[in-house]
Amino acid sequence: MTQLPETTERKLGLVIDLDTCVGCHACVISCKEWNTGGYGAPLADTDAYGSDPSGTFLNRVHTFEVKPADKPAMVTHFPKSCLHCEDAPCVTVCPTGASFKRSEDGIVLVHEDHCIGCGLCAWACPYGAREMDAVEKVMKKCTLCVDRIYNENIPEEDRVPSCVRTCPAGARHFGDIGDPDSDVSKLVAERGGFDLMPEQGTKPVNKYLPPRPKQQMSDDLDEPVNLAALAEPTANGGFLGWLDNALERLG
């Protein structure tokens, strides 16, 4: 059914911290690894060892340069996957009913056996969250690891999306963004989480946390910090520590 639910009981989604992400692409690889063997058709690679390799991915990390007018440019790594929009345009355009948004948790999924591979949903998504699999010819997208988060056959700490479980920097958070008391909602409120392309009217569930302001450059300080001195070995405590301090005091 491609009509969107009026409301969903929960709004499960991701909160992605652009301040913390180090751009290691571990989430991209773990996503591919889990989802190529899990739910639905595998994620094909074509010409993987040739001159024009290409593949289906549900999560990709872009890297942007942001250039403020009066400061040096900064680099921001930017992971992007399906935002599980409340007003998902990809769902309503689907002619077959293969695309749908679940009323219980808001996850947007594709029933692959019903997908005719027309590609219209990928056109309708402004975020590029959907990719047609080159081999299976059906639309693939992030499932929020629906086969992990409710899976009682795996340890409880693993019942989060694969990308969240893998992220070594703790830049990805999973939870119910519709519940104002959830950890993810508190994080969004505290850090000023925002929507991507709000002007498209899609009401994304996933939120992004902005990079924290960079520290002021050293020209604001009275005198430059001698970084080399900070690296000098020091003895902490004990007789040597006392001796070190005593000798320092002598000048």
Partner: peptide, 11 residues
């Protein structure tokens, strides 16, 4: 990217 408040964004 939602980073427009910081400056000009390019890939």
């Amino acid at each position: 990217t939602g980073l427009g408040h910081l400056g000009k964004v390019r890939l």
